[in-house]
Amino acid sequence: MRAFFVSIVGTVIVLAAAVAPATGAPPENPERVYENPWQPIEISGFHNCNGETVAITGEYLLRATTRADASGGTHVSYLFVLRGEGVGLTTGTRYMTNERIHGQETYPSSGTIAFTSTGSGLYKSSDPATPDLRYAITIHATIIPDGTMTSEVLNITANCD
C-alpha cells in the first residue's frame, strides 16, 4: 500500500508543481487555480488484507491552488480523488474503491521545502469472505536547499473489516 500511495502522491506532486509559479518575485496574479474535470484512470492498487494486487479502472479529479506570498515563496494545496472498480488479480474478487489525498506544499524563497499529505481510502469487497480494506496515511517531509531531508514522517494505518 505504501508504494501505491507514494506513487499517487508523486503524481499529484508533479501535477501540483507544474501549476506552481517559480519562486522569486511574486507573480502579477498571486493565486492560480488548476482544476481538471473527472479523467479516466487505470492503476494497480494493493489490498493489504489479503495480499492481492487489484487492477482498478475508474476516474480521478485533481484540484490545485497556488498562492504567492509577499516574500516570493509559493504555497500549493491540492485535492486528488479516485473512485472506481477493481478486480483482484489473484482471486478475481471485485472491489469498489474510493480514495482521497489532500496535500500542502510550501516553496519559500529561502529554498527549504515542506510537504504534508494525508490520504484515506476504502476497498469494498463484493465477496463476503474477503474483508474490506480501510486505510489512512499521513506523510510529511522537509527538505533543505542542498537536497537533504531534515524530517520525514510516514504513518500508515490499515483496517480489515
Rank of each mutant, 00 (worst) to 15 (best):
R2S: 13
R2C: 08
F4T: 03
V6G: 02
V6Q: 07
S7R: 15
S7C: 09
V9Q: 09
G10M: 12
G10K: 10
V12C: 06
I13Q: 06
A16D: 01
A16F: 01
A18Y: 11
V19D: 06
V19G: 04
P21W: 01
A22D: 13
G24F: 02
G24I: 04
P27F: 08
N29Q: 14
V33S: 10
V33F: 06
Y34F: 13
E35M: 13
P37D: 07
P37A: 06
Q39I: 06
P40D: 14
P40Q: 10
P40I: 03
P40V: 10
I41K: 04
I41C: 03
I43L: 12
I43R: 02
F46S: 05
F46E: 05
H47E: 05
H47Q: 12
N48E: 15
C49N: 06
C49I: 06
C49H: 05
C49S: 12
N50D: 15
G51C: 12
T53L: 05
T53Q: 13
T53G: 10
A55P: 01
A55M: 02
I56Q: 00
E59Q: 13
E59A: 15
E59G: 09
Y60K: 00
Y60N: 00
R63F: 13
R63W: 06
A64F: 04
T66V: 15
R67A: 11
R67T: 13
A68I: 02
D69A: 08
D69K: 04
D69N: 09
D69S: 08
A70F: 13
G73Q: 07
G73P: 07
G73I: 03
T74G: 04
H75R: 15
H75L: 11
V76F: 03
S77M: 14
L79D: 09
L82S: 00
R83Y: 08
E85M: 14
E85R: 11
G86M: 07
G86P: 01
L89I: 12
T90P: 04
T90E: 15
T91I: 04
G92R: 15
T93K: 03
R94L: 14
R100M: 04
R100E: 00
R100H: 03
I101R: 00
H102V: 11
H102G: 10
G103L: 02
G103C: 10
Q104C: 06
E105C: 05
E105A: 11
T106W: 07
T106L: 10
S109Q: 10
G111N: 09
A114M: 10
F115V: 07
F115G: 02
F115E: 01
T116R: 09
L122Y: 04
L122K: 08
L122D: 02
Y123W: 15
Y123C: 02
K124V: 05
K124E: 09
D127F: 13
D127Y: 04
P131L: 09
L133D: 03
R134Q: 14
R134K: 12
Y135A: 01
Y135I: 01
A136Y: 10
I137E: 00
H140I: 05
H140Q: 14
T142G: 05
T142Q: 12
T142Y: 08
T142P: 07
I143E: 07
D146P: 04
D146N: 15
T148F: 06
T148A: 14
M149C: 15
M149Q: 14
E152C: 14
V153Y: 11
V153R: 13
V153E: 12
L154Y: 12
I156N: 01
T157P: 06
C160N: 05
C160Y: 04
D161P: 14
D161I: 13
D161R: 09
